[in-house]
Design a binder for these strands. Structure first.
Lengths: 204, 204
DNA sequence: TATCAAATCTAACAAATGTTAGGTTTATAA
DNA sequence: TTATAAACCTAACATTTGTTAGATTTGATA
């Protein structure tokens, strides 16, 4: 490895990238989220990590493989975070809140670039790569469906659980367009509002 | 005008385009919705309307102006449809249902291409053009906010109306990814489910 | 028919961009 | 020190794509 050490201390934030491949993924996530996948060319990405465009192809087969790597991480990070927090939650309502908070955090938290790219650039992926990601996502979605089904049985939610899940997924994907952390409502209050919208307070 | 008459009968569906400009907007909406703005080049668009790429620039200053025209129409159609249906609605809950149905129809109905492009390709627009569209949209949004505020006062919804609006906007933008008209739930049932999720049945 | 403007075509430019092949540097190990 | 492979660079290719200028056609009008 050449100048990875010194370069990574330049460009990477916390959780510094060990390898160049790692650094490329992190930086690509940031650039793709900021300027879009199409409007981010290999030369920009290369410069941002401190190397030349051609060198990227030593680490990735092509541009799309980088996009895939970013999205892959988005999904695995999300699943990991949920699985960690959902265990101590005992009631369906508590588990629902964990899911809501975690997915919102994916789009608004520290690592929001990954979630942002996953949503925004979905159509920039080839169909078969989309399929690969969807099967990775299946386990995560089953957590949602199970939890919402429980909530429905308990009368906590009234509408069809599967439809609610879809609607929420869209609602959360959208928050990046309007939610400002310095606005009238902080993150935890946002979670409260979502629960307030969803849940019948006189049940469960 | 050259071959507009015969060509429009080839490519346009109902509500056939009178002028070439009109035909270009319709076709662009369809192609942009289908394949994305970036992946639709002027040559494809030209061929789809039966002319050559260069000729498009007689009708539009550039590609972005076509995108803007599509989005402009999406917004004005939406506002028109809402204003037409919201008048006979008497209660806040009925007005809310009109808003829900109309916005859902924008993404799932006959003219869904326009709504689809408006959502998907938002970031493909220059910032100042985005601003222009947002001020056009303001009137429509005020209808939402007024209605949701009424619903909140009546206790029909519990959560913050402005937040609910934002969440719904995202949820509806997302339906195109999952809703199938031939699935388990038809359009009107979908509207019902949304209302069921939102509204406290024991109030208003 | 002659005229004129609207509408379209032809042909090419110019910039951006993903990608590649081959050379060069750097670190590691014998 | 030398051999080797990983990591990176240089330089260019090939394609795509928005755009444009000028020629050409079409349709209506006088």
């Amino acid at each position: 490895m050449a100048k990875t050490a010194e370069k990574s201390s330049d460009t990477s934030k916390a959780k510094g990238a060990q390898s160049s491949r790692e650094l490329l993924i992190e930086t690509a996530a940031r650039l793709f989220a900021q300027n879009g996948y199409n409007k981010t060319n290999m030369r920009e990405l290369a410069e941002a990590v401190g190397m030349k465009a051609g060198s990227i192809f030593y680490h990735f087969k092509g541009k799309e493989e980088i996009l895939f790597a970013v999205m892959e991480r988005a999904i695995s990070d999300l699943l990991e975070a949920v699985q960690k927090d959902i265990v101590p939650a005992e009631t369906p309502r508590q588990r629902l809140r964990v899911l809501v908070r975690t997915e919102l955090d994916m789009f608004l938290g520290d690592q929001s670039s990954y979630g942002l790219v996953l949503i925004h650039e979905w159509r920039s992926l080839t169909a078969d790569l989309q399929q690969d990601l969807m099967s990775m996502r299946a386990e995560y979605e089953s957590l949602w469906n199970a939890t919402l089904a429980d909530c429905h049985l308990d009368g906590i939610i009234k509408a069809n659980p599967k439809i609610v899940r879809r609607l929420l997924n869209g609602a959360f994907s959208w928050v990046i367009y309007w939610y400002k952390a310095d606005g009238e409502c902080n993150f935890e209050q946002l979670v409260d509002e979502v629960m307030l919208m969803l849940v019948n307070p006189s049940a469960g």
